[in-house]
């Protein structure tokens, strides 16, 4: 068995005072080791809910989620958000070892050395004593990624990690983050509303329906030979893939429109 993450028949209902809402209806998919998977779907389809379920921050109403065959353990998961959420009162070094500190491993030299080498490898070594506000948006996002990698998670969950950046920075950071994730041989699950971003980064794109969401289609992407995400946008297949995914999401919207 090669799969790291296995989501089987997951169902999630949340309650409000007025009624209960079925957010997720019978979702199943697997992610293999080292794979980069993207989830796209119409807005409000519960993409973030899925990440919270996988991270173990929410419990599924039905179904199961396993990580390496075991029930999810939040500490085995790395979570990256839209904003970098670096703590302004901490230096870059104190920020990246936050996870180790929480696990009381900040004195474990093997782990801290690993963090140091990550910082060095990705051009942040000279900034470890700086405060986050002294860094550019792209650098900050790299620091946030290293903070996530510091605890050596089994899988990275990326919740629209580039959407708070301006367009140019976004393309650069996208390449940077992709490089780091591939270099460190990490498995990643990205949630995004940006179809181009999904295609350029992922090996596999999962298209969700609108709420209650289920998996509409899983599309395999094979653009590895084109290099980094930015280059992949120029691939001839890119348009076709884009159209295919676009149609799936649009179709969804029309269907919904006719219902009302």
């Amino acid at each position: 068995m090669n799969d790291v993450l296995k989501v089987s028949n997951v169902n999630y209902i949340y309650h409000t005072l007025q009624n209960e809402i079925e957010a997720i209806k019978d979702i199943s998919f697997t992610i293999n080791k080292g794979e980069f998977v993207a989830i796209v779907g119409p807005s409000g389809c519960g993409k973030t809910t899925i990440l919270s379920l996988i991270a173990g921050l929410l419990k599924p109403t039905k179904g199961s989620i396993t990580l390496d065959g075991k029930n999810v353990d939040t500490s085995k998961i790395g979570y990256m958000f839209q904003k970098d959420h670096l703590f302004e009162w901490r230096t870059i070094w104190q920020n990246v070892i936050l996870g180790l500190e929480i696990k009381k491993e900040q004195k474990n030299t093997e782990k801290t050395n690993n963090v140091k080498s990550l910082l060095e490898k990705y051009g942040l070594k000279d900034f470890i004593k700086n405060k986050p506000r002294e860094l550019s948006g792209g650098m900050r996002q790299r620091v946030a990624l290293i903070r996530t990698l510091a605890t050596d998670p089994k899988i990275l969950l990326l919740d629209e990690p580039f959407s708070a950046l301006d367009y140019q920075t976004r393309l650069n950071v996208c390449d940077d983050v992709y490089k780091i994730i591939k270099n460190e041989n990490k498995t990643a699950l990205l949630v995004t509303h940006d179809i181009s971003e999904a295609i350029s980064l992922a090996d596999k794109v999962i298209i969700l329906s609108s709420r209650p969401s289920y998996v509409k289609k899983i599309i395999n992407i094979n653009l590895n030979s084109y290099g980094l995400p930015f280059k992949r946008r120029e691939a001839p297949e890119f348009r076709e893939l884009f159209d295919e995914i676009w149609r799936e999401i649009q179709y969804e919207k029309k269907e919904e429109g006719s219902k009302n």
Binding site: G78, H85, G99, I102
Partner: peptide, 14 residues
């Protein structure tokens, strides 16, 4: 305090 920051702390096992 930003909910995402709390979420981040939780995801780090805090």
């Amino acid at each position: 305090c930003d909910k995402d920051k709390i979420q981040l702390m939780k995801s780090l096992g805090a």
